[in-house]
Computed example of a mutant assay.
Amino acid sequence: MTASGEHIKALVRNHAAGDDAAFYAVALQVAAKAARQGHGTLANELKRVIEGARSQPVASKVTAIARPRGDLADLVTAAFPNVSLRDLVGPPQLKDAIARVLHEQRQRQALSEHGFAPAHRLLLEGPPGTGKTMTAAVIAHELALPLLTIRLDSLLSKYLGETASKLRAVFDAAASQRAVYLFDEFDALGGHRSGNDVGEARRILNSFLIFLEQANAESIVVAATNHRSILDHALFRRFDVAIRYELPDGAQASEVMKTRLGPMGRGIRWAAVQAQASGLSHAELVKAAETAAKQAILRGEKQVTVADLTEALQERRAAGSE
């Protein structure tokens, strides 16, 4: 037999944990063992299958939940992000927190065997445009899962009076289909119950707290908010991890723009633009870099100048102050 018992157990564990990289690594070990045993044809076939599976788009691997129907059709939008953890710019402690969540999810079966659940309820809070939504996309991509965004505006306006039942439909989907479920602008749902005179709104939040408490650890529920101060305090203890986002410092701002500009940013003296970047969010910095790049392209040039970037940053700052 080409695959040893240890190989087979490792394949099963990695498949169950959703760790594709480890799964393929073990599969390649099986192929290498086959080659050493003189089974060259089998080894080559295994390698072709592995490479083919690796190159298969994530979108083709997910099930019909990516096309929400029924109760979810008007509430959920699906995406298959292609952004990795290394693309996220932020302080080391933020990236470490996300890496820990990913590691626990990839090893969720091992944790379950000892009576523990992986971190699967995340609260992301901080100013707009600082990477909260991108973090949900990173988690989805790294775990090869679809990202399902719940449209809270529809939930709270179109379905007022039956919101709790719609929330239940979302959490039922989370229990049956492994995915990342993002509740963006969560403060619309999670405001202080004591400050809300509408009984229906209080019932909605109470329902969410119950559903969140009972949420299946197979899926990841992410709530993103710009306004921590208005969130009901009962929410915080229901989340496994709370991550705080801040506006980027000078070095991070330069990294955000450098990443977006790519080769067009070569030659930029980043220290010369950091002062203009101060106080802008990640999203605003990306927009400024794009504006500068388009200006250079329209002039027929292949590189952005400091003047291009400075002007674009000043425009973003002026737009934000209006």
Rank of each mutant, 00 (worst) to 15 (best):
residue 49 V to L: 14
residue 178 R to G: 09
residue 30 V to T: 10
residue 270 W to K: 08
residue 5 G to I: 14
residue 274 Q to G: 09
residue 209 L to Q: 03
residue 89 V to L: 07
residue 214 Q to A: 10
residue 92 P to G: 14
residue 126 G to D: 02
residue 23 F to I: 02
residue 121 R to M: 00
residue 69 R to P: 09
residue 229 S to Y: 04
residue 176 S to Y: 11
residue 35 A to P: 02
residue 295 Q to H: 07
residue 70 G to W: 07
residue 243 I to Q: 04
residue 95 K to C: 15
residue 108 R to N: 11
residue 94 L to C: 05
residue 178 R to N: 07
residue 147 L to K: 12
residue 105 Q to Y: 08
residue 159 Y to R: 00
residue 238 R to T: 02
residue 277 A to F: 08
residue 322 E to I: 12
residue 85 L to G: 06
residue 87 D to G: 00
residue 178 R to I: 07
residue 13 R to H: 15
residue 186 F to K: 04
residue 19 D to T: 15
residue 50 I to P: 14
residue 257 M to N: 03
residue 138 V to M: 06
residue 215 A to P: 12
residue 153 D to T: 00
residue 3 A to E: 14
residue 91 P to V: 13
residue 321 S to A: 10
residue 37 Q to A: 08
residue 96 D to P: 10
residue 180 V to C: 15
residue 228 R to D: 04
residue 193 R to M: 04
residue 54 R to E: 09
residue 289 A to D: 00
residue 92 P to W: 13
residue 203 R to S: 03
residue 44 N to G: 07
residue 304 V to A: 03
residue 247 L to V: 02
residue 232 D to Y: 00
residue 291 T to D: 12
residue 294 K to S: 15
residue 220 I to W: 00
residue 27 A to K: 01
residue 300 G to T: 05
residue 128 P to V: 15
residue 85 L to S: 05
residue 223 A to D: 01
residue 45 E to Y: 13
residue 306 V to I: 09
residue 227 H to Q: 05
residue 39 H to K: 14
residue 99 A to V: 07
residue 145 L to Y: 10
residue 149 T to M: 02
residue 108 R to M: 14
residue 31 A to V: 14
residue 285 L to R: 13
residue 201 A to P: 01
residue 190 G to N: 00
residue 211 F to T: 01
residue 72 L to D: 06
residue 204 I to H: 02
residue 251 A to W: 10
residue 314 Q to I: 11
residue 266 R to E: 15
residue 260 R to C: 05
residue 41 T to K: 08
residue 238 R to F: 01
residue 287 K to S: 13
residue 220 I to M: 01
residue 154 S to F: 07
residue 37 Q to S: 08
residue 286 V to R: 11
residue 199 G to K: 06
residue 157 S to E: 06
residue 203 R to V: 02
residue 81 P to G: 02
